[in-house]
Write a protein that binds this DNA or RNA. Sequence first.
DNA 1: GGCATATACCTTTAACTGATAGGCATATAC
DNA 2: GTATATGCCTATCAGTTAAAGGTATATGCC
Lengths: 115, 115
Amino acid sequence: MGQSNPSFMNGVPELLILSLLRRREMYGYELVQQIRAATGSVVVLGEGVVYPALHGLEKDGALKSHRKTVEGRSRVYYALTPVGEARLTELSGVWAKLTQAIGDALGGVAHVPAL
Amino acid sequence: MGQSNPSFMNGVPELLILSLLRRREMYGYELVQQIRAATGSVVVLGEGVVYPALHGLEKDGALKSHRKTVEGRSRVYYALTPVGEARLTELSGVWAKLTQAIGDALGGVAHVPAL
DNA sequence: GGCATATACCTTTAACTGATAGGCATATAC
DNA sequence: GTATATGCCTATCAGTTAAAGGTATATGCC
């Protein structure tokens, strides 16, 4: 029966979220903006991607959350756990290996320089 | 209505196929093995990915094919067209921009060195 | 001859991810 | 009081890729 393994390209949203949370704890809405900012709008993840990812990571024990009310706003802050740090290290390694492999395969393909 | 844009991560199979075909023409079965070899088995695309991609690229005018019988084997060789070269340049640029953006966002995340 | 394996082409099917679109609530600005 | 920005969340859909199967020929082996 057709059962697909997750594609080799997946897990980047997770990777970005974990890496941003490594620096400091953040809440979901903030992450959406920070991902946009950190990638120069090359990667733009909507809330419909970020929130489910946060919930999944918390369920896996990679994040822990606590509510805090700031300026009359109730926010759910997420912080990395040791499990999350390990996950980040792992995903980062996979990503590095992947990009290097593809870079090697591309060899000297000229691309239009980013303007 | 829910209409998904293609994910920012897509198009890598196409990119790999085009980049390998830039060096020399190949047939589908050969591409499957060359992609595996060129990426050190980091990226392994099955025939179910490669053949449809080839057909799509040909329909777009990015590739042209011709049948050739070699060693009693009937093979369909694919070669890049100018359209395909342009496509390769474009995809390569997108990929470079993407990996750089993600690399920047990751900043100094230590990853386990590939063994 | 009969069988397994490797080559070579292709399609069908389905899972998974991520994108879109919404719904809810509060605060502030006009 | 209405619009906009913040902040959380879920439901649903679509595109891409993965897996599996289906056909056919060639070669090596018993």
